[in-house]
Amino acid sequence: MIDLLYAATELVTSTRHGSPAMLQRRLKNDHGVRVTFKTALSLLDQMHDAGIVGPDRRSTGREVLMESDDAASALRAIHGASWSSAA
């Protein structure tokens, strides 16, 4: 799940758009991974807990608060120093 969270975080920070529908579409197209709306929402909630994205704004998607490098550091702080983007 951490690899999926990292891939989702990379997509959100690179596109500057945080919505479950975008994650579903891009994870499928770019990584060949199908995720449910509920899973995409859970990934965004985890990013929110890490301070990477703002709260749910329903129809407009979440505001992206961090750049990619800062987001990776935030995830490392939560999941441990042994985790990295190469995982």
Results as ranks from 00 to 15, higher is better:
Val12Lys: 00
Leu44Gly: 04
Thr39Asn: 00
Arg58Tyr: 12
Ile78Lys: 08
Glu67Ile: 04
Val12Asp: 01
Ile52Arg: 00
Leu5Met: 13
Ser73Asp: 11
Ala86His: 10
Ser84Gly: 15
Asp69Ala: 13
Asp69Pro: 01
Ala74Arg: 05
Ala7Phe: 10
His31Asp: 05
Arg34Ile: 01
Ser59Cys: 09
Glu67Trp: 08
Val53Ile: 13
Leu5Thr: 08
Phe37Arg: 10
Arg57Asp: 06
Asp45Trp: 13
Leu75Ser: 05
Ser59Lys: 14
Glu67Lys: 02
Phe37Lys: 10
Ala71Pro: 03
Asp49Ile: 15
Asp49Glu: 15
Ile78Gly: 00
Asp70Arg: 10
Asp70His: 06
Asp45Ala: 15
Val33Arg: 10
Ser42Met: 05
Leu65Gln: 02
Leu43Ala: 00
Val53Pro: 08
Gly61Ser: 12
Asp49Val: 14
Lys28Asp: 15
Asp69Phe: 02
His48Asn: 10
His17Ala: 04
Lys28Gly: 04
Ala86Ile: 11
Val35Glu: 00
Ala87Trp: 08
Asp30Thr: 02
Gly18Cys: 06
Leu5Tyr: 11
Thr13Glu: 02
Arg58Val: 14
Arg58Ser: 10
Tyr6Asp: 05
Val35Tyr: 02
Gly32Leu: 07
Ser68Gln: 11
Asp56Lys: 14
Gly51Thr: 13
Ser14Lys: 08
Asp3Lys: 15
Ser84Arg: 10
Leu23Ala: 02
His48Cys: 09
Leu27Gly: 01
Ser73His: 13
Ala74Gly: 04
Ala40Arg: 05
Gly80Pro: 09
Ser84Lys: 11
Ser42Asp: 06
Ile2Pro: 00
Val53Ser: 06
Thr36Phe: 00
Lys38Thr: 07
Gly54His: 08
Tyr6Ala: 07
Thr60Phe: 15
Asp45Ile: 10
Glu63Asp: 15
Phe37Gln: 04
Val33Met: 07
Ala7Glu: 13
His17Glu: 09
Lys28Asn: 12
Asp49Met: 14
Asp56Gly: 08
Glu10His: 04
Met22Gln: 07
Met66Ile: 05
Asp45Gly: 11
Asp30Trp: 05
Pro55Met: 08
Arg25Glu: 12
Asp30Glu: 14
Arg25Asn: 08
Ala71Cys: 04
Val64Asn: 01
Leu75Ala: 10
Glu10Trp: 07
Leu65Asp: 00
Met66Gln: 11
Arg26Lys: 13
Ala40Asp: 01
Asp56Gln: 08
Glu63Trp: 10
Gly80Asn: 11
Arg26Tyr: 12
Gly32Lys: 03
Ser85Val: 12
Arg16Pro: 01
Leu75Trp: 11
Asp3Cys: 07
Ala50Gln: 06
Arg62Thr: 09
Pro20Lys: 08
Ser84Glu: 08
Gly61Asp: 09
Arg26Ala: 14
Phe37Asn: 02
Lys28Met: 03
Val12Thr: 05
Gly51Ser: 11
Ala74Asp: 03
Ser59Val: 13
Gln24Trp: 01
Ile52Lys: 03
Ala77Leu: 13
Asp45Tyr: 14
Val33Leu: 11
Gly51Tyr: 09
Ser42Gly: 06
Glu63Tyr: 12
Ser82Phe: 12
Ser85Leu: 13
Arg25Val: 07
Met22Ile: 09
Asp3Tyr: 11
Leu75Thr: 10
Met1Ile: 14
Gly61Pro: 09
His31Lys: 09
Ile52Gln: 03
